[in-house]
Design a protein around this nucleic acid. Structure first.
Lengths: 144, 144
DNA sequence: CGGCATCCCCTTCGATACTG
DNA sequence: CAGTATCGAAGGGGATGCCG
């Protein structure tokens, strides 16, 4: 997706940090830059319009394509397909196709994908709690 | 890679924010429709390319525009401006301009913006821990 | 120094139609 | 049922230039 674009990135220059002080990567400058890259790539994967919602929807059971389509309001067939392919490629969900008529395909979180559930919950918690404040701040800002 | 050091990949790192007992909201294992919309909302705000990185960079001190530019590798002047405006509009950061020559502008997290730090931390932890696994899975998927 | 404004490419995503 | 193919609108985001 947004991964491979033309990023100039001068190799001679050692950048300063975006994330020094965060647990686990406060040690050196190079790790900080790696952390920044990693975060951006993860956001590119999971920060898109539907990925995290698909993950959240699959948190309990394996679901069929059409079930996912029904459980996620507003998603189009095309976007569900594309999102599922990305997640499968990244090892976050598994796809199982049964050779039946009519065909049946089931999707399921992998162990790796399951580790994203706490993130979905954290984001969901924050959004439910603070969305009204954001709306309020925004309308005040726009009032000028 | 960088992820193998430090923390031994504990997947559940749930940060308890100040919203325990938030009126009308209880944290549950369920990610229902409201939470789904909430996830979509916050991802629209903060799931873009730079917002979370700006938040993380401001987590300690107030910083000037040029300092932010230096601390966030790869961001363009234009995108930093746009990101800061949006964060300011949503009440997540505050902007203070000093009438000096040369001009000086400082950005700082608001209290609301500060509540995003646990999210940045959670995502950062996950990214560092699992980014290598994703890259690996992706290359295997592509090799077929 | 701290920005807007402009140009323009590229990606994302929805709508629609078709297939095994 | 579970996709694939194609088109087109919308906007994200880099490069550059100008300005208080």
């Amino acid at each position: 997706m947004a991964a491979a674009k033309g990023t100039p990135m001068s190799p001679t220059h050692i950048e300063e940090t975006a994330l020094a002080g965060f647990p686990g990567y406060e040690s050196s400058c190079e790790i900080d830059e790696d952390a920044g890259r990693a975060i951006r790539e993860v956001l590119d994967r999971v920060g898109d319009k539907w990925s995290l919602l698909v993950i959240a929807t699959l948190r309990r059971d394996r679901l069929r394509f059409s079930e996912l389509l029904r459980h996620i309001p507003g998603i189009s067939q095309r976007m569900l397909t594309l999102t599922l392919r990305q997640l499968q490629r990244d090892g976050l969900i598994s796809r199982t196709a049964y050779a039946e008529v009519p065909p049946r395909v089931e999707y399921e979180l992998t162990a790796l994908g399951g580790t994203l559930i706490p993130i979905a919950r954290t984001i969901g918690d924050w959004a439910l709690a603070n969305h009204p404040a954001i709306v309020e701040s925004r309308s005040q800002y726009d009032a000028r």
